[in-house]
């Protein structure tokens, strides 16, 4: 019997839209993994639109004495992707304009030309490196698998500069986790596993990633 800790951003969650690409909870990669280790204990936190540090803070606060055998981390796109405004600036714009007007100007807040011009980041490389190191230091006895930060090729046009940033952040993970950095993009593309938003995954994507992780765990 093993103990699993799974930390993911929104990509680890089921997906209810678009209708053509609905992914049920049972079809997500973490659930497929659970089904392969029925006698094991799982603790999973999947939370959208938070940085890796914010996600990890929950586990650090509550689980530092739990000592999981296997940790799967799937986070980094929020840290790395370019934005036009900081979160604080977005909140101010939202408050100043009200929800209705903000809805109308939202398309400008997320406009690719503005993102290309401003290139604001939520988490610096140094802060991301610090968080990645901390996870390893705190859970030194655990096998930690960190999934590649990846999106489909079309994402770059919505978030100009995303590919370059992701590469840099993936390099940080590789530098700290070595062979426990898990490459997944190629396989997801092979099975046409990205959702139409070029970020989340459909059930084929989840299945492909589950298979990669299961192979890694079984080979360990």
């Amino acid at each position: 019997m093993s103990k699993f800790l799974i930390l993911t951003d929104s990509i680890g969650n089921p997906r209810s839209f678009p209708v053509s690409e609905i992914t049920q909870l049972e079809e997500t990669y973490s659930y497929i993994i659970r089904n392969n280790f029925k006698n094991s204990t799982f603790w999973q936190l999947s939370y959208g639109n938070v940085s890796t540090e914010q996600l990890f803070s929950q586990a650090a606060g509550y689980l530092s004495n739990w000592e999981p055998d296997i940790i799967i981390i799937h986070s980094g796109i929020i840290d790395s992707r370019p934005e036009a405004f900081t979160e604080f600036q977005k909140t101010v714009i939202n408050k100043l304009t009200g929800r209705f007007v903000f809805g109308k100007i939202k398309k400008y807040v997320f406009h690719p030309a503005l993102i290309r011009h401003r290139q604001v980041y939520r988490v610096s490389k140094a802060r991301f490196r610090k968080t990645a190191k901390k996870i390893k230091l705190l859970f030194g006895q655990s096998k930690i698998l960190w999934l590649e930060i990846c999106v489909a090729d079309g994402y770059e046009s919505a978030r100009p500069g995303a590919n370059k940033r992701m590469e840099a952040y993936n390099n940080i993970i590789k530098e700290i986790y070595g062979k426990d950095f898990v490459k997944i993009k190629e396989k997801i593309l092979e099975v046409d596993g990205f959702n139409v938003d070029n970020l989340h995954w459909n059930k084929s994507g989840h299945r492909a990633v589950a298979d990669i992780i299961l192979d890694r765990i079984n080979a360990a």
Binding site: E53, Q54, S64, K130, K133, K134, L137, L138
Partner: peptide, 24 residues
């Protein structure tokens, strides 16, 4: 420290890992 880190610093174990991640 990051704002969200402060509430996690409630054991020596976490404090040690956090500080070492910053300075090492």
């Amino acid at each position: 420290f990051e704002e969200c880190e402060i509430e996690t610093l409630v054991s020596y174990k976490v404090i040690k890992a956090t500080v070492m991640a910053y300075v090492s």
